[in-house]
């Protein structure tokens, strides 16, 4: 990680309005948020409050309808869809609650996937994906299909996929939501290792215990964001 002078993520008065037909829904309102490179941030909030919406914005999967979003100091709103795709591909890794592995590809091929869109050669893809699978302890499972492994393993594959491009930012949307407590603890440990290695981690969770392990906690309620000072978790 190069230490950039400004924050990695900078949202100013960010708003997101969903408009479907005549129905207008304000999912995010006036969000101000800065995340420094190397930070570990937990996002909490009730269901439907806008957590995923915020994460999609930060992950360049979606666009704001008002306010501004600077990623690594650059205004993302000026980028084309392909520009955003490039950012997602090179700078950002996603981990989802429902794993989102491709069912017809084996574990190794799933991990390779982002590298295909970087134009990396087949051989190098194989090597890098294998190395990444080893870090999550699943190298021996490389030829298995996602349906043949457990939830905890799937999530570790998803993490390997998110990290294979060596992104600075890892976004995890309720990564433990579909896991039993043991696998969940397991995944949290992996995330902490990733953070310890210098990456910025943003984590959505419902679990205050999980959130407590982050360096910062923010709450979203009805699309508004409030930051909770560390050491004083909400009860």
């Amino acid at each position: 990680m190069t230490s950039s002078p400004g924050p990695l993520i900078s949202l100013r008065r960010a708003g997101k309005i969903y408009q479907s037909g005549r129905v207008r829904f304000e999912a995010l309102r006036e969000i101000d948020l800065e995340v420094a490179a190397g930070d570990y941030l937990a996002i909490l909030g009730p269901s439907g409050s806008g957590k995923s919406t915020l994460m999609n914005i930060i992950g360049c999967l979606d666009r704001l309808t008002s306010g501004s979003y600077l990623f690594e100091g650059d205004d993302v709103s000026g980028l084309t869809d392909d520009g955003l795709a490039l950012l997602r591909n090179r700078r950002i890794g996603f981990v989802f609650q429902s794993f989102n592995l491709l069912p017809r590809l084996d574990i190794l091929e799933n991990v390779e996937l982002p590298l295909i869109y970087q134009g990396v050669s087949r051989r190098e893809r194989r090597e890098r994906a294998m190395a990444q699978l080893e870090t999550v302890g699943l190298a021996d499972w490389r030829r298995h299909l996602p349906t043949e492994i457990s939830g905890g393993q799937k999530q570790r594959v998803a993490i390997a996929r998110a990290l294979v491009t060596r992104p600075g930012l890892l976004l995890a949307d309720e990564p433990t939501g579909n896991l039993d407590s043991r696998s969940a603890a397991d995944i949290m440990e992996v995330l902490e290792t990733i953070h310890a290695a210098g990456r910025t981690v943003l984590l959505i969770t419902h679990d205050p215990g999980v959130a407590a392990r982050a360096r910062r906690q923010v709450h979203i309620i009805d699309g508004r964001l409030t930051e909770t000072p560390v050491g004083r978790p909400l009860t």
Partner: peptide
């Protein structure tokens, strides 16, 4: 559709 979403999320461009 979902596969396409996943591919887009990991960086596939529209032309990909």
């Amino acid at each position: 559709t979902r596969e396409i979403g996943i591919r887009r999320a990991v960086g596939a461009r529209t032309r990909d």
